[in-house]
């Protein structure tokens, strides 16, 4: 192929060089978001030759290359058992098979939408994002603002998830009107228990605002405590007070809040039930 508008760098040095030297150049990964809103007179930086399609275990955790597709994540035997399979389960809630064969992890993060699953998963599991220039971003930092602005003239090469933990309870639930529709809200929870006490809990939701939200104060109510009905209601109250919800033409803000509380209650009442 001989052309002037598509660049297919073979290594990261070349990639950064092209990004820095060309003003109107945009990385293209799966293309599923970019092609729908392609700016005019743009040059494309095709990331496909960079060999960033891989899934590896390391230190009992996971490294996933940014050009790995969602389908590859779902099919991976390594991902299957990690944190009770929560990454696989959450990935399965992304769009439909033919979309998932194209959507990449890097594109899911940088082309962030309210429904983007991987930003939520990274926040939930305390993951990290690695860039071509060698920066390492903790998920909470990268998703404190729009990732594209934080990255600048850099690309994501890899995401990392920390060491797997056994004896944790995990939960990922998408609420939508059809299986493949964008979620009204999706919620992820991981919970470490010490007998009947909650040792550590993280609660993250997507679908509410552009960036994923973590409910730190609700987590504090539960942490180091035994779960009971009063505490569950207090958590729900707290979340309803603190949650931010953007407009969504499909449903009202109140509806979203209601669904969110139903999902959280579903998880917490199940925990309570198990303690009995």
């Amino acid at each position: 192929m001989n052309n002037s508008k598509i660049f297919s760098p073979k290594n990261l040095v070349e990639t950064i060089d092209l990004l820095t030297k060309n003003k109107k150049i945009v990385p293209i990964a799966g293309g599923t978001s970019l092609l729908l809103n392609l700016p005019k007179d743009i040059k494309l930086l095709d990331l496909q030759q960079l060999k960033l399609n891989y899934i590896r275990s390391f230190n009992n955790g996971l490294k996933i290359g940014s050009m790995t597709t969602v389908s590859d994540v779902i099919d991976s035997p390594i991902v299957k058992g990690y944190y009770n399979g929560i990454i696989k389960e959450a990935s399965r809630t992304i769009a439909a098979t033919a979309n998932r064969n194209l959507i990449t992890i890097g594109g899911n993060i940088v082309g962030i939408h309210p429904w983007s699953v991987f930003p939520g998963l990274l926040m939930l599991l305390e993951g990290k994002v690695i860039t071509a220039k060698g920066f390492v971003f903790k998920a909470e930092k990268l998703f404190s603002s729009i990732p594209k602005n934080i990255l600048g003239k850099d690309i994501i090469t890899e995401i990392q998830f920390p060491a797997d933990k056994k004896n944790v309870v995990t939960y990922w639930k998408k609420f939508s009107f059809t299986v493949t529709d964008y979620p009204i809200v999706s919620i992820g929870i991981i919970c470490e228990k010490d007998k009947e006490k909650i040792k550590k809990i993280r609660i993250v939701a997507i679908g509410l605002t552009l960036l994923p939200q973590r409910f730190v104060n609700a987590e504090k109510i539960l942490q180091d405590n035994k779960i009971d009905e009063k505490r569950i209601l207090s958590v729900v109250d707290n979340i309803v007070q603190e949650v931010k919800v953007s407009n969504d033409i499909r449903v009202s803000v109140e509806y979203k809040k209601e669904i969110l509380t139903v999902l959280i209650k579903e998880f917490l009442y199940k925990l309570l039930e198990e303690n009995k």
Binding site: I28, G31, T32, L36, D46, A98, N99, N101, L102
Partner: peptide, 15 residues
């Protein structure tokens, strides 16, 4: 061999 949406697939990638 994989099903993809051709409306979201840049043709140059089929090379």
């Amino acid at each position: 061999g994989k099903a993809i949406n051709s409306c979201l697939y840049p043709a140059f990638r089929a090379n």
